[in-house]
Design a protein around this nucleic acid. Structure first.
Lengths: 335, 335
DNA sequence: GTGAAAGCGCTAACAG
DNA sequence: CTGTTAGCGCTTTCAC
């Protein structure tokens, strides 16, 4: 059931069969049909390996991710995979969880001969890794992070942070806490942008930032819960909390409710992401389109492969979603 | 930077270079070292396509999933990818979201020449699809579902359901609602097992099932919320609800809280999964190890590839996790 | 122990 | 329009 069989059955040479099957121009319509029929009869499926060898391409794109179980990654991967599949490209998944896997990946660069392009999904790289990446020889595009000067698609972290902070400020909050999500796997620019937004928003409102109001934790609801406890233990706790992610915000919410605080009566909470559970938890947040980022990354890859010019930096918009966890600060006596 | 270059640099034939690099027996130690050194110098990476062509294998396994953004799938994929990576196998991801993609996949069977095995992750197939699958010519293993007589790894759906139901029953509940999660992509056996557990547990407790207490919805928190509203609208609402998944349970919880019911004071809720957010939501549930299922599926694939005998059916244990959403039913006057 | 040569399945000139 | 002829990069008998 390989090309030779098909060719034999159709009574042509394998060269002609190849041309017919790949819709080359100079093939007689009748011949083409005969070949296709033979292929169908034999349930022929071309071997991409052989095709790739001969053609010098692989028909695959490698996708590198640090996590899979977190919402953003799954959603982005969905967008990515859909667009690649539509283009007939296979998706090779490299999940680099621990440092060892990571190290091995960048040392051996297995993607080099296995894919026509690689996309880094929410995968921040350090100096050494970026340097290794340059030797990979195929196009690279980043999604959710920036990687050197490679094309990338992501949200505007700073703007997203401002949407959240400005919302809180407009509501009248003056004492706002921030829970920073520091994920070693993500681009450092991400928390940086979100934190910068916090400081800038405060400054614009003429508020002196209180360092005690900032807590830095790793990315998990449990850590968010803990950070919130810390904030609550302050002499003057915040009346609102801006979390770098919904998962963290959800953790904070739990602490608040357990401690008997009313949300948003006593303290408001806002996150970033619009995680699917944010809707049913009634969490105010700044929505970012994850699947769309994946899809745009795929388009960028496709354009690059086709030799078309590509946008070096595409930014997707975020949107403030006001739900039930953000409200006016408790007045000093007012309703 | 291909084998020929390495061979030249090491001063041997490419045949010898090949043997040395693939750790074949009859190669002089000195030669082997020389070849490896040359390979390192040149940063040589073998082309798996060429290797595969020559050897008749691909070094890849195809993984088919219906979703990616849902917790179980991401977690299972993590386990799977880790184990495959450790074995040096690449992972080809096929996300078959819509019916069209699905149809195309089973018609064309692209995985046929592209992978040495395929694993269906939480991917239930119908009769026709299963028949097509048999023509694929490579080993198939299922995880989270059963697929024909192919090897599979999953939990015992019925047992998991019993753990949840028996817990509620022991607590003293007699009027228990069930929210069935019907996911067209999943094996039908899944909701079937969980539903059977409901009926059997009730029967064992001598309770007549009330058909009104069963709601069937598709898999999403919103649907869970809606189903709960329905249950609450009953003349005699349940004192406890057994949801087929945590995501649904979380939706139900929201409805309950919004409607002013105390949980578990007025009504108890239990789910299945132990979703990461279940912990911070304080949701009682039956935990199932998702990553482990993926990992065991990978082991099964590996064993099959190695020609070793494989367990046709491996079942991983589930565990009742009692948290804050399940408690005694409201007594008719007691505390 | 090592080299020469023949392919794996397909594509791409180059002739006809 | 179609067949012939070379490879793509690697592995593998089969000799030496």
């Amino acid at each position: 059931m390989n090309l030779a069989d098909v060719a034999r059955r159709a009574g042509v040479s394998s060269a002609t069969a190849s041309r017919a099957l790949s819709d080359h121009p100079h093939v007689a319509a009748a011949t083409r049909e005969r070949v296709w029929q033979a292929a169908r009869d034999l349930e022929y499926v071309a071997s991409p390996d052989a095709t790739g060898l001969a053609r010098g391409t692989t028909g695959r794109v490698a996708v590198v991710v640090p996590h899979l179980a977190r919402w953003w990654f799954g959603a982005a991967l969905e967008g990515l995979s859909g667009a690649l599949r539509a283009a007939g490209l296979d998706l090779l998944l490299y999940r680099l969880g621990d440092p060892a896997a990571r190290q091995a990946f960048f040392d051996e660069l297995p993607a080099r001969r296995r894919a026509d392009a690689v996309v880094l999904l929410g995968f921040g790289v350090d100096e050494r890794e970026r340097e290794r990446l340059d030797r990979i020889g195929v196009g690279i595009v980043a999604a959710g992070t920036r990687v050197g000067s490679h094309p990338s698609v992501s949200i505007d972290e700073y703007a997203a942070g401002r949407q959240a902070m400005d919302h809180l400020l407009h509501l009248g909050h003056r004492r706002i806490g921030m829970i920073v999500a520091a994920d070693p796997d993500l681009d450092l620019a991400q928390p940086a942008g979100r934190s910068a937004a916090y400081r800038a928003a405060l400054a614009d409102a003429g508020i002196d930032p209180d360092p005690d109001l900032t807590a830095t934790v790793t990315w998990s609801p449990e850590c968010g819960a803990r950070a919130m406890s810390g904030l609550l233990g302050l002499a003057r706790p915040p009346t609102a909390v801006y979390a770098h992610s919904d998962e963290i915000a959800l953790g904070a919410l739990r602490t608040l409710r357990r401690a008997g605080y009313r949300v948003p009566g006593d303290v408001s909470v806002i996150g970033i992401d619009d995680h699917p559970l944010a809707a049913i938890t009634d969490l105010s947040t700044v929505a970012q389109p994850a699947a769309e980022q994946g899809e745009l990354a795929a388009r960028t890859v496709l354009a690059g492969l086709a030799g078309e010019p590509v946008d070096p930096i595409v930014t997707v918009p975020t949107r403030l979603v006001i739900r039930g966890t953000s409200g006016r600060p408790p007045g000093p006596g007012a309703s």
